[in-house]
């Protein structure tokens, strides 16, 4: 039994128009995606904006309606009504630390919101629990009476984490958790996320457009383009043996701070871009979408047309 299994997931958004505002077309934000996650590991979902990675995260947590396909969490179908209680095992950390905390609420109320929904504690116990959570994410326990605008972006994201772990979930969807933060704060928050992962035995679905961060955080990686998977595999598979031209291009784009490599990097990027332009039609179908995934090793899958594999 997989920890989390996504099976042929499709999430389409209708485009309405015409005389009666009927559905005339759909944006295929997620188009037939399948993957599995292992407990205690971090799965990275990578792609450019609009590739559908966030939509997958939101579908798992229940914010986006699933058009077709299934999601199983510890073997249970998430869409089925009787499994509602497992929702508390899946929590989310949002991208924007400014809009994800209600500006009119005190930190106490923000962090206590999930506790109030699922547990019945006395005011005192609740306050104690919130204070513990605040200390756990590295904030002062006295700060619980402040409002979100009194905190910096990094601190707000920590509050977001405190809220997400309040119910002791098993899976956390982290939707670009650091991309709205200053670079100097990003590493702090990422390391802290890894710390609590160990402490609480959390599993992360880490959504990001930044391959550098993904390399740092993730054990398994899926790469998306226009709602479909392009390549997936273990971190080593992707970074040492990228197969798809899109993956190659993404990896070539990771900045390297060593100035001695500058010329090499520049040439390498130019080569990859040339290859990308030349072989685009071999890797994408007529509509510019990726083909279906095929195994090239036990752990490594690539979206290639049949003839390429043979």
């Amino acid at each position: 039994m997989e920890f989390l299994e996504v099976k042929n997931l499709k999430v389409h958004f209708p485009i309405r128009g015409g005389l009666f505002n009927r559905k005339i077309d759909a944006v295929k934000a997620v188009d037939d995606v399948s993957f599995q996650m292992e407990e205690g590991k971090t799965y990275g979902l990578v792609g450019e904006s609009g590739s559908g990675k966030t939509t997958i995260g939101r579908a798992i947590v229940g914010l986006n309606k699933i058009t077709a396909g299934k999601i199983f969490f510890e073997g249970k179908d998430l869409a089925s009504a009787k499994n509602k209680s497992i929702r508390k095992d899946i929590q989310m950390i949002f991208q924007d630390p400014y809009s994800s905390l209600n500006p009119k609420k005190r930190v106490l109320d923000i962090v206590a919101e999930p506790i109030r929904n699922y547990e019945s504690l006395t005011r005192k116990e609740e306050k104690q629990k919130v204070q513990d959570l605040m200390e756990r994410v590295g904030l002062s326990a006295e700060a619980i009476l402040k409002y979100p605008h009194e905190f910096s972006g990094g601190q707000r994201q920590r509050i977001g984490v405190a809220r997400a772990i309040a119910l002791k979930p098993k899976l956390i969807i982290a939707d670009e958790p650091v991309s709205a933060l200053d670079v100097s704060v990003q590493a702090q928050v990422l390391n802290f996320m890894q710390d609590i992962q160990k402490d609480l035995n959390l599993t992360y679905l880490f959504i990001s457009h930044d391959l550098g961060i993904v390399k740092h955080m993730c054990d398994q990686i899926g790469i998306m383009y226009k709602g479909r998977y392009v390549e997936s595999g273990k971190k080593e598979d992707i970074f040492t043996n990228p197969q798809h031209i899109y993956t190659k291009r993404l990896i070539a784009a990771i900045p390297d701070i060593d100035p001695r490599n500058r010329d090499f990097q520049k040439n390498h990027r130019r080569d990859v871009q040339k290859m990308y332009d030349q072989s685009y039609h071999e890797y994408f179908d007529k509509e510019g979408l990726a083909y279906h995934l095929q195994h090239i090793s036990e752990s490594h899958q690539v979206a290639l047309p049949h003839r390429k594999v043979d």
């Binding site: 939101r58 809009s99 994800s100 209600n102 999930p114």
Partner: peptide, 23 residues
């Protein structure tokens, strides 16, 4: 996001409307 977050935290629509959005 804060209204969306409330959904994932298990708050009902009514609760979100009157305790999260209304303020």
């Amino acid at each position: 996001d804060y209204a969306q977050a409330s959904r994932t935290l298990g708050s009902s629509h009514l609760k979100i409307m009157f305790t999260q959005v209304l303020p």
